[in-house]
Design a protein around this nucleic acid. Structure first.
Lengths: 124, 124
DNA sequence: GCATATAGTGTCATAAAGGATACCGTGATG
DNA sequence: CATCACGGTATCCTTTATGACACTATATGC
């Protein structure tokens, strides 16, 4: 989802939906937030949770989440470097959404085969 | 958000989040679903609710939502054509999510300026 | 000396999302 | 006859998100 650039939110009343989706719609953001809900994580810990992110993507997504005020970065002046990421209050306020997404996914995305079939038919 | 092509969902347990986001992450899908939650709508009704969708985009998004089983298309063999869109049961199951998004947006996206200021002060 | 781990950055490439524009067929309306 | 409304299609194009790959600096271990 390309980042939506509604300068003004004139498409009321749906826009809260849109705007929110916009903030958490990055390819990895949902998962990053989800994993951080369990506690503070270091860069490479997150990276290992997400099986195939590139460093650059992860950095990007983390930066955006940080810019949006959802997470904080704590840098330890060490060598080797150590950076910890954790949710802010603002980030925690997204928990209900992430949870709702997870619950829905758990309920409706079960049977990968069925889902895959759907996805593939769309791709075709 | 380019459509994610996780052939296998090996990044458990976050993937339900990812997969769900993937289904409703289209630029207009959230809003379409939101509006349809209020009841059946015709093509141009939806179009008017979304202030600036092009026909092609709306058609695309509706088709994808239909392919994913969230909405149904009911075509009336009339001239001029009449097509009605409404949520399926599957589509209705997304209501909690859409609502959560809307609630969050209403709470946290109010007065963009204020939010931006907050974010920035925190970032500073 | 060389590899490893850490948390990145920079450059380049590509696929996909989103958009602009024009067109279709029909029936009613002017 | 020209035009509009309806619900689309077909083509082409631009912007973005995502990805691959190489590179950095330093301390530790072999």
């Amino acid at each position: 989802m390309p980042r939506i650039r509604h300068t003004n939110f004139d498409c009321a009343p749906g826009c809260p939906v849109e705007g929110t989706l916009n903030l958490i719609g990055g390819k990895w953001k949902g998962m990053i937030l989800f994993h951080l809900m369990s506690g503070t994580l270091r860069f490479n810990e997150i990276r290992r949770h997400l099986n195939s992110v590139t460093q650059r993507m992860l950095t990007n997504q983390l930066r955006e989440l940080e810019a949006d005020g959802f997470i904080t970065r704590k840098v330890y002046a060490q060598v080797p470097p150590k950076v910890e990421y954790s949710l802010t209050e603002h980030g925690r306020s997204l928990e209900p959404i992430i949870l709702a997404l997870k619950v829905w996914g758990d309920t409706h995305l079960r049977s990968e085969a069925a889902k895959a079939a759907t996805v593939r038919s769309r791709a075709a």
